[in-house]
Computed example of a mutant assay.
Amino acid sequence: MTAVPTIITERLLLRPMTADDWEPYSALMLSERARYMGGPFSVKVAWGMFCADHAQWDLFGAGALMLEDRDTRACLGQVGINSGPLFPEKEIGWLVFPEAEGRGYAFEAASALRDWARTVRRLNTLVSYVDPQNDRSRRLAERLGATLDGTAPRPDPTDLVYRHFA
């Protein structure tokens, strides 16, 4: 079993998931805003995703962390390293709840988790699977220093694959 870390950044606490995170998570996953992740999803599918995000820590030594504002304690979104049969490679992904978009939280969180993966887990590479229509995530992957990898396997043949520190 891997202990789920807590990572502190300038503005954020990247912390383990709790049952209280389900409500804002499901609101996003059931909405049209989940379209770049294959949604909107049913409650049943979203619940399975939520549980898998948490379970990956025990199964694979990495998983999802929630983004919490250090000052207000508001839950702002999620960042995670996805593994398992649905992901050809370890994938770093992010989502930010609508009220927190446009403030750099995803960049701050993804940078911190990416650095943790490199230094603590000693992962040599991560990928980000990005819907080609999701301009914000494409720009974020590039801002994180990732580069397009046209030869990488992908869960969805239409996804772009951005490689981090290969």
Rank of each mutant, 00 (worst) to 15 (best):
17 M>Q: 09
19 A>E: 15
19 A>F: 00
21 D>Y: 00
22 W>T: 05
22 W>C: 08
23 E>Y: 00
23 E>Q: 12
23 E>N: 04
23 E>P: 14
24 P>V: 01
25 Y>G: 08
26 S>I: 09
28 L>I: 05
29 M>T: 02
30 L>F: 00
31 S>H: 02
31 S>R: 04
32 E>V: 11
33 R>L: 14
35 R>V: 12
36 Y>Q: 12
36 Y>H: 08
37 M>Q: 14
37 M>L: 14
37 M>D: 12
37 M>A: 11
38 G>W: 01
38 G>R: 12
38 G>C: 13
39 G>D: 07
40 P>V: 12
40 P>Y: 00
42 S>V: 10
42 S>F: 06
42 S>G: 11
44 K>V: 15
44 K>A: 15
45 V>M: 13
46 A>R: 02
46 A>H: 01
47 W>P: 12
47 W>A: 12
47 W>S: 10
48 G>K: 09
50 F>V: 01
51 C>E: 09
52 A>F: 01
52 A>L: 13
54 H>P: 06
54 H>G: 08
54 H>R: 15
56 Q>M: 15
57 W>G: 10
57 W>T: 07
58 D>R: 03
58 D>Y: 00
60 F>T: 12
62 A>S: 14
62 A>Q: 05
62 A>N: 14
63 G>M: 02
63 G>V: 02
64 A>D: 07
65 L>F: 01
66 M>T: 03
67 L>H: 00
68 E>Y: 01
68 E>L: 07
68 E>V: 08
69 D>W: 10
70 R>N: 04
70 R>H: 06
71 D>I: 14
72 T>H: 05
72 T>N: 10
73 R>V: 09
73 R>L: 15
73 R>P: 10
75 C>F: 01
75 C>T: 15
